[in-house]
């Protein structure tokens, strides 16, 4: 058991866990940030995607030790973000379990590519699984979020 300092959603937090503990469990069970969902634990589904130093990352396969000192943003760190607004406008979600991960992957995409084409959207979200089949609405919502960011309409 060791003490690690995590920088999460703009706040400094400390957790007392073994260093190899997956970051996902530290976020969920030590810090109460349950928006990142457990879907697979092996980095294969994207339900936990959060930002680490601005890039989309999978806390289920990152250790606390590795993430200490980095700037972590979970879905709870977004506040009325254009991507969230687009998701609501297009009524994207079905069960919703994968959507925090889809949204965080999209936030990372738009930070890098403000006006992605379909191929770029597909590439960025290829490893975010949605079992309900919301992909057509996700594609549309990513484009809509890009519009909102640009200030269209």
């Amino acid at each position: 058991m060791s003490r690690y300092r995590l920088h999460v959603n703009g706040r400094r937090r400390t957790v007392d866990v073994p260093g190899e503990t997956p970051l996902l469990w530290a976020l969920r069970e030590e810090l109460g940030l349950t928006g990142p969902r457990y879907g697979c634990g092996v980095g294969a589904c994207g339900a936990c995607v959060s930002l680490i130093d601005g890039a989309a990352a999978r806390p289920c396969v990152r250790s606390v030790e590795d993430a200490a000192g980095a700037r972590i943003t979970t879905i709870e760190g977004l506040h009325d973000h254009p991507v969230q607004r687009a998701w609501l406008e297009l009524d994207v979600a079905q069960c919703g379990y994968c959507q925090p991960g889809q949204i965080m992957s999209t936030v990372a995409l738009l930070a890098e590519i403000p006006d992605p084409d379909d191929e770029q959207i597909d590439r960025a979200l290829r490893d975010n699984v949605c079992r309900c089949g919301t992909y057509p609405r996700i594609r549309a919502a990513v484009r809509r979020a890009a519009e909102i960011v640009r200030g269209d309409r």
């Binding site: 928006g35 879905i75 709870e76 969230q84």
Partner: peptide, 19 residues
Amino acid sequence: AGRSDARDIVTGRARYGAE
């Protein structure tokens, strides 16, 4: 209207089994 739980879903507040 959209899904009734949509706001909780996109903010991560939705409570599934574990939550």
